[in-house]
């Protein structure tokens, strides 16, 4: 893939034939249009170790507050928590609210920013300079993810095979889901020895 002579693709021809108007939006994928131009997400990848440490404390705190969430009702706290989560993660990672966050398995680089929304690693089209196949001037999300994961203590979680995205969970709080699941797991672990479950 030579970058000096851009090949004339079918897409280029279609775009050229499109009716002309004064308004010409930047020629990028819709995925890119919602991305911020200032790259806090790249800072987040560079400081993935710090964020990993912070998230571990943060999720513990959330789990400690489980009785509170349960008391108020998860359904009732969802609104405000989602409001905060969307803004914080949006600022830090350009989060797309898939509702099943795997940032800690992807070196703090949000895979939903990939134009193909790949969640299990880079595609075969990554350019020689490490940029995206679809967006020639954007660093590949997964190149960044690999770099980020190498700084992290549990960075090898990047090797886990991720399940397909459950689209019905979009626009829900991943924080609350993770907390509720962790609470349920803790509960199950506490009950397991009593029921004599095999190890």
């Amino acid at each position: 893939m030579s970058e000096t002579t851009p090949a004339i693709t079918q897409a280029t021809l279609v775009k050229k034939a499109a009716p002309k108007s004064d308004y010409k939006p930047a020629d990028v994928s819709p995925q890119r249009r919602v991305q911020r131009s200032f790259a806090v997400r790249l800072w987040s990848v560079r400081h993935s170790r710090l964020l990993e440490w912070f998230y571990a404390r943060f999720s513990d705190m959330f789990l400690l507050l489980h009785p509170l969430w349960k008391g108020i009702g998860y359904g009732r706290v969802e609104g405000p928590i989602k409001f905060v989560e969307k803004r914080v993660k949006g600022f830090m990672f350009d989060c797309r609210m898939c509702g099943q966050c795997i940032l800690s398995s992807t070196g703090m680089s949000c895979p939903m920013n990939c134009p193909k929304q790949l969640r299990n690693g880079p595609c075969g089209g990554v350019r020689a300079n490490g940029n995206c196949e679809v967006e020639p001037d954007m660093p590949c999300v997964w190149v960044k993810a690999w770099e980020g994961s190498r700084n992290m203590v549990h960075g090898d979680k990047i090797l886990d095979v991720q399940k397909p995205v459950d689209q019905s969970l979009r626009e829900t709080s991943a924080w609350l889901r993770v907390t509720a699941q962790a609470a349920a797991a803790r509960e199950a672990a506490r009950n397991a020895p009593n029921t004599g479950a095999p190890a």
Binding site: P164, V165, D166, Q167, S168, L169
Partner: peptide, 12 residues
């Protein structure tokens, strides 16, 4: 809609 079927997690 995908919500009607056996795989509501699918992308519509």
């Amino acid at each position: 809609g995908v919500q009607a079927g056996d795989q509501p997690g699918a992308k519509p």
